[in-house]
Write a protein that binds this DNA or RNA. Structure first.
Lengths: 197, 197
DNA sequence: GTCTATAAATGGATAGAC
DNA sequence: GTCTATCCATTTATAGAC
């Protein structure tokens, strides 16, 4: 379980080691159930090393949160680029998020399931984060292009992505019997039927 | 802000005072950002009184969580009783949950947005709680009756209720300009189009 | 840049008076 | 049944050696 290896890391490698250990533990036990001492032990580093690389515990969590949101937003925009039309883009986004959930449940647990505002008080709600804005933009465009019917954009966006996000939550809670990819077609089809022109 | 009143409460009234203060503070600042001392101060009671009525902090949270889930489940079942058919029942459930969110945002914040497993480790995931099971049952029945098309029941349930739940989250995050009731018709219509036979 | 040791504060929980 | 006072463990963060 411990990330401690015989080779002792230094500099940026040590910083990455701290980040990945913290991510694992925050996702698994939650921010408040993970002490600096827990991270120190699990990562095989010293308290001083942690405080050298991060101002405090909150800054460590914030660094994780922001970089992971940017990563996901990049993934979303990458798959969007190779598709045209709101349907294709929405499908590609959901497919990508399903894949990320299966490949990297820890990251998705941390980003989607945690209540960041409890420990990052200055953070805006998740719905105004870049990935969620990107999703909303796809829907806005679809309404403008008349691919999607002319309803409130929040309603359209939550209809398109709300079910998929719940399915990701169910997968992370261990409730589903099959991998998310098995549900992709039905999820996308049902959501799209609700909003298509 | 303080719930402290000149008349000092005793017995069950004091217990209720503790519960409602704790609910407010847990919903507002989160479980881990609320200390027993905070609750003591805000409720205008003593530490001893809290520990007389509840074994510990966790038991206090658990008592709140369980009774609120039962209340919501009763509400859901009450509105279901006066409707027949999956569409009518689903619509009534969403309407009721929208109303509860507007009337009692604090309760909904605590039930829907918090990560209870971080401080109630023995609690099952929220999707297996009674209210969510009741929703899933409505969808199961609809599939059996062929009112809803024959797809995976989780997909159908998340399609029907996933968007509405996200809209409730947006409302609680203060993102929406209008009350949830204004979105009800569109939300229900979009969701139902996705799963109807 | 990383370590160990420890300071300083907080918070959950208990004891015992009333 | 409720109160006050306090104990003790935990935790964040710092100081200073290497």
């Amino acid at each position: 379980m411990s990330n401690h290896s015989t080779k002792s890391l230094r500099g940026d490698e040590l910083r990455d080691q701290i980040l990945s250990t913290a991510l694992q533990m925050f996702a698994d036990k939650g921010y408040f159930n993970t002490s600096i001492h827990d991270i120190r032990k699990e990562a095989g580093v010293s308290t001083g090393a942690i405080y050298h690389h991060f101002k405090n515990k909150e800054a460590l969590a914030k660094s994780l949160y922001e970089s992971l949101l940017i990563e996901i937003d990049n993934d979303i925009n990458d798959v969007c680029k190779v598709h045209t039309g709101s349907y294709e883009k929405s499908r590609a986004i959901i497919k990508k998020m399903f894949a990320l959930t299966m490949e990297n449940p820890i990251t998705m647990q941390f980003i989607l399931m945690a209540q960041h505002r409890e420990y990052l008080p200055d953070e805006p709600p998740i719905c105004s984060s870049k990935p969620f804005q990107s999703m909303k933009n796809v829907i806005s465009e679809g309404i403008k292009n008349q691919e999607i019917k002319n309803i409130d954009v929040w309603v359209a966006a939550t209809t398109m992505f709300g079910g998929a996000l719940r399915m990701m939550g169910l997968q992370l809670d261990g409730v589903l019997n099959q991998p998310l990819s098995d549900y992709l077609d039905e999820v996308v089809e049902c959501a799209w039927l609700g909003i298509k022109q």
